[in-house]
Simulated assay, not measured.
Amino acid sequence: MAELIAVDVERWPVAGSFVISRGAKTYVDVVTCIVGDGPHRGRGEGTPIYYKGEDAERCAAAIRAFAAHGDFDRASVNAQMKAGAARNALDCALWELEAQVAGRPVWELAGLAQPSPMATAFTISLGEPDVMEAAARKAAAAGYGLLKCKLTGEGDLDRVGAVRRGAPGVRLIVDANESWGDLDIVAEAAAMVALGVELVEQPVPRGQDERLRGLDAPIPFCADESCQTADDLERLTMYQAINIKLDKAGGLTEALKLAEGARARGQAIMVGCMLGTSLGIAPAFLAAQGAHWVDLDGALLLAEDREGALVAQAGLLQPGRLWG
């Protein structure tokens, strides 16, 4: 059992700005917590899910309120707290605490493969085509072999075409951010395939997922906003892939359940993230071992990061020593 030692809200600046169809961000607020059992400590970080109405202060309040009931463990946290950034921070802190108590790394406790460097996508923020082309050229020159384009449902082909011109040799995935609801989805998908795109995230708004069922599309669709926890999998069989994010799932514990359930259903796995520091990305790095697509650049998009941060070298995300 554990007790809450500290909970804080921190603000971290973004390098430039991070632009998607819902707006631009120049900073990210995260909630952090420390738990302990006396001699041992565990740390966790969560980034509030803005489209679920979360913010960092409310997440911090939720952690304090839960901890006020007394000692807790991962089982009680996952049974009693709703999925989201607050539970993610507590769940991951408890994983690290358990590892400290056992004298073993988290990956070993969780039955995961020992982490090794992996290729991560680098996100090309939404912008005018020439801006996205320049960003793609810069990312490719830095060694990123997988780029992710943010889309908006208008002018998408021009944007993706520009990214392809800027980085002709890279793999491409796109995130529609629910913006294709009024479009001919199969035609849009076919046009993306012609540009070498291999995956489309969340083409339709959450709740309209049935529109994808039975479509003869030439490209896999990946559930993002529609897929929060393992309970969602049964109704998301129209998707060929799911995007697991620890802040959506509410922690590493639920993320591992999601991965197991998706594999049992024959769905491919993408592991993604929100903007956040390496303390929040490190648990996702463990869950991403063996994923089909890895999109863990959330800390790489910040102007600064924590000491001991994960780093990218030639497009490969390297395991750090910050957590676990």
Rank of each mutant, 00 (worst) to 15 (best):
R64F: 08
L212C: 05
E98F: 05
M192C: 15
V204P: 03
G181M: 11
I219C: 14
A15E: 14
L195Q: 14
D305R: 03
Q202F: 06
E154H: 12
A262N: 09
A249D: 06
R87W: 01
E10C: 11
I34M: 06
P220V: 11
I185D: 00
L316E: 15
T26K: 05
V311L: 13
E45R: 03
V200R: 06
T277V: 04
L296Y: 03
A15M: 09
W12C: 02
A15N: 12
V101N: 09
D305E: 01
L199C: 07
G276E: 01
E10G: 02
G251S: 09
H292I: 00
A194G: 05
S179Q: 12
W12F: 09
V294C: 08
L301C: 08
V311G: 10
M192Y: 14
T120P: 00
M118H: 07
E10Y: 09
P13R: 14
V160L: 14
G53C: 11
A140R: 00
A309T: 09
A287N: 10
W293R: 10
W107Q: 11
G166I: 02
R41E: 05
G42N: 03
L279V: 02
R58Q: 13
E154M: 06
L146G: 01
K82C: 10
A291S: 13
A264T: 02
A93L: 05
Q114W: 07
S17M: 12
E260Y: 10
K150L: 09
C273T: 09
L296M: 07
L258V: 15
K148M: 06
V14F: 14
V31I: 09
K148C: 03
E201G: 02
D297Y: 01
A135N: 12
E98S: 14
A287M: 08
A142I: 03
A187D: 12
Q202N: 05
A110Q: 00
Q318I: 14
V35L: 04
G143M: 09
E178Y: 03
A288I: 01
F221I: 15
W12M: 01
A194E: 14
S125Q: 10
L126H: 08
A162G: 12
K245L: 04
F285D: 00
E10W: 09
G103F: 08
I173H: 02
T120D: 00
P105M: 13
V271D: 02
A24D: 03
A79P: 08
P218C: 13
E225F: 03
R263S: 06
V186M: 08
A65I: 02
V271N: 03
I49E: 08
P13T: 02
A135I: 00
L236D: 12
S179E: 04
A309E: 06
Y51N: 12
Q313A: 13
L109T: 01
A102N: 10
D209Q: 13
L301N: 15
